[in-house]
Write a protein that binds this DNA or RNA. Structure first.
Length: 687
RNA sequence: GGCGAGGUAGCUCAGUUGGUUAGAGCGCAGGAUUCAUAACCCUGAGGCCGAGAGUUCAAAUCUCUCUCUCGCUACCA
């Protein structure tokens, strides 16, 4: 019976920044361990990844830095790809969504769905800004309200009379981008009616049943995944736009769809397919063998992702695959929680991160140490935390003391007693047989755990073999017996060496570099998983003198890394670029004054909003402000702050806000009032 | 605010369908040992299982309320 074919994907990293340890621990490393195991265990596997290189964030960043989007994605594709290679994440291909093959694949996919009537197409007349060459979202258009003649009504709503509007209702519409009148152009968008799919999604996610057949075992799916999906489905799915008006991405492959690209949902996940195609082309394979259903369950698709990506991979992509037809659906979507760092969240803007490429640069010889630690603390079921102190403890107490030490003592004794040759095995005691039985059982236990995606436990089980070895030596004390019973010592050392050799196989998925070193010491070849647990070397086989596998990590190392982390300044400036020049006249239209907050309450059912009563010197008015996460109601009362007085009133969460509190924002997104230095009173004009 | 997932020994985490003294690794204490990277091995101490209420002969496990953390989502002119 041939084993199942696996298509394993790891979430596509977004090509606008490097990878940090959180990404590694929560997606790439577990995926790699899983794949390395599957390969050893005789599965046909293709391991897919690539960089996601489209989307508005990249174009915005390019604009800010004054370079092209292509330059950005080229830069980060290289940094990320190089890190993966050096860290020995064994992708079969690391592709990119800007490749022509991907564009073709995504377009083809779109066309099939379109032809099958799987989309709802909505064509509307929308305003278009000719200077900025883009369609305008409703709120980027202002004009005169047809009902109350308010000259500054928004495209979606007139704040003055409260009537709901559409942009075409406005008289004399103006684009807030260019300040000029926009023109009407017809535009179409394609929506995926997800609501049509609730019926089959429910049993598929909850029970693993697809088209009346058992497709996967929902018990192996994580709670979080099933919980979040069911919550979405039970809450009712809604049609979602699958296209966007943007000039950076995969163009919508239909006539009259200029300036439109496929939305990320129809772009990034299809990157898994296009990457497989490229790999197949490069290696003389057929990509369809890994994606197309053959009516059985022996082709499995597995998506390793972070928890922020669950709905995307467990609902939307499956809908797309099913709508297209002919594809297999995910067998599992192992979603990882998040990793924290030294008591705080990873944060790119604060540069609170251990960047993978920097780690590799500093410690190119400590790759397996990092892998081991990250697997130990992998956030499989809840958020977890990386600290350098824990890294030190894991390396010193476990890798060095238990694993490294066992290997070293077994091989050093062999050198001493037998000049490196494996001694013969004599008669086995009951204890010997028990140890060999344990050794035999471990690979099976590891395999069971891996198939359940419990990789942390699986690695611990592999370490169990080293513990077994240490205990065996301690129990049998060959260094004592050697003086009285050298025959018995031969058997003991024979068994110790079998354990050592087995470590060289069993550790392979987790610590590939270490396993290779171990096999070099033992002078054996890599073998399939089936071989592990058995006797791997015979009497007379020559072993080598060992070197230290894991040097200890001293306290200075930890202190240095913690200091480095604390000293790192925010990377590039995250402040937005300067806005376009404006006229003095326009500036003087703004009426900004000091106002004193006399009362503050939380707006019900809103996390971020405070309803403030403000004495402006002219009057006392109500202003709703999105500062609740930065100021408690009681601490703002009495403060005199900057207020934009003549902003058109607007209803927010049912409360009319008459003006706006001006806030300063720092790089972390924290907000601060603007308070007069000399303690001026309410009413003071700000110019 | 709505929804989802978590809150279990100092730390990192397991606890299957409710059932005897709640587990593992590390750390800590004591012991034993010296082949080995002052390593290994043995023993032990440590938990009101986030808080409160309920269902039950029996609750870490089921129900409700509250609270803290993370994610998705809404609100942020």
């Amino acid at each position: 019976m041939s084993k199942a074919k696996y298509t394993v994907t790891a979430a596509l990293p977004y090509a606008n920044g490097p990878l940090h340890l959180g990404h590694v621990a929560g997606v790439y490393l577990p995926a790699d361990i899983f794949v390395r195991f599957l390969r050893k265990n005789g599965h046909d596997v293709v391991f897919i990844c690539g960089s996601d290189e489209h989307g508005a964030a990249i174009t915005l960043r390019a604009k800010k830095e004054g370079i092209t989007p292509q330059e950005i994605v080229d830069k980060y594709n290289k940094i990320i790809g190089d890190s993966f290679r050096q860290f020995a994440i064994s992708f079969d291909i690391f592709h990119r969504t800007s490749e022509p093959l991907h564009h073709e694949t995504a377009q083809e996919f779109f066309k099939v769905l379109e032809a099958k009537g799987k989309f709802i197409q909505e064509t509307t007349e929308q305003y278009y800004d000719e200077d900025f060459q883009q369609f305008l979202a409703d709120r980027y258009i202002t004009g005169e309200c047809p009902n109350c003649q308010n000259p500054s009504a928004y495209g979606d709503q007139c704040e003055k009379c409260g009537s709901d509007l559409s942009p075409t209702d406005l008289k004399n519409p103006v684009s807030t981008l260019s300040g000029k009148s926009p023109v009407l152009r017809s535009t179409s968008h394609w929506f995926l009616p997800m609501d049509r799919h609730e019926e089959w999604l429910r049993p598929w996610i909850k029970e693993g049943i697809l088209d009346g057949k058992q497709q996967h075992d929902p018990k192996t799916w994580r709670n979080q995944v099933i919980g979040q999906c069911m919550s979405w489905i039970d809450g009712g799915l809604h049609p979602r736009a699958m296209t966007r008006d943007l000039d950076w991405g995969v163009p919508v492959p239909l006539p009259g769809a200029d300036g439109k690209v496929l939305y990320v949902w129809l772009d990034a996940p299809i990157g898994y397919i296009s990457a497989t195609k490229q790999w197949a082309l490069d290696n003389g394979k057929d990509w369809k063998d890994y994606w197309v259903t053959n009516g059985t369950n022996d082709r499995k698709l597995v998506h390793f992702i972070g928890k922020d990506n669950i709905v995307f991979h467990a609902i939307i992509f499956p809908i797309l695959l099913k709508d297209h037809g002919g594809f297999i659906l995910p067998d599992n979507v192992p979603a990882y929680e998040f990793l924290n760092l030294e008591g705080d969240k990873f944060s790119t803007s604060r540069n609170w991160a251990v960047w993978l490429h920097e780690y590799l640069e500093r410690y190119p010889d400590k790759i397996d140490e990092l892998k081991y630690t990250l697997t130990c603390i992998a956030p499989e079921n809840k958020d977890s935390e990386f600290t350098w102190k824990e890294f030190q403890a894991r390396v010193n107490n476990e890798l060095a003391d238990i694993l490294g030490n066992f290997v070293n003592r077994a091989l050093v004794l062999t050198q001493k007693y037998y000049e490196g040759a494996v001694p013969a095995c004599g008669e086995l005691t009951e204890a010997d047989q028990a140890v060999l039985a344990d050794m035999k059982a471990i690979p099976q236990r590891i395999a069971d755990l891996v198939y359940q995606y419990k990789l942390r436990d699986a690695q611990a089980e592999a370490m169990q073999l080293a513990r077994l070895g240490n205990k065996y030596l301690a129990d049998n004390e060959p260094w004592k017996l050697v003086k009285t019973d050298s025959k018995r010592v031969e058997t003991i050392m024979h068994i110790a060496l079998q354990i050592t050799a087995n470590l060289g196989l069993v550790l392979d998925p987790f610590l590939p570099e270490t396993a290779a070193k171990l096999r070099a010491f033992m002078n054996i070849e890599p073998q399939d998983w089936d071989a592990s647990g058995n006797l791997l070397v015979s009497a007379g086989h020559q072993t080598a003198a060992p070197t230290i596998l894991f040097p200890k990590i001293d306290d200075e190392f930890v202190a240095r890394e913690v200091e480095f982390l604390n000293a790192s300044q925010p990377v590039a400036s995250n402040f937005p670029p300067q806005k376009e020049e404006t006229s003095f006249d326009d500036f003087t239209k703004m009426d900004i004054r000091l106002g004193t907050i006399v009362d503050a309450i939380r707006v019900p059912k809103a996390d971020k909003l405070l309803q403030l009563t403000v004495n402006t010197g002219l009057d006392t008015r109500t202003i709703v402000s999105g500062i609740a996460e930065h100021y408690a109601p009681e601490e703002v009362v009495g403060k005199t702050v900057a207020v934009l007085m003549n902003l058109a009133p607007r209803k927010i969460r049912g409360v009319e806000s008459q003006g706006m509190i001006l806030m300063a924002e720092n790089e972390e997104g924290k907000l601060s009032f603007m308070i007069p230095e000399k303690g001026f009173d309410a009413g003071g004009e700000i110019r």
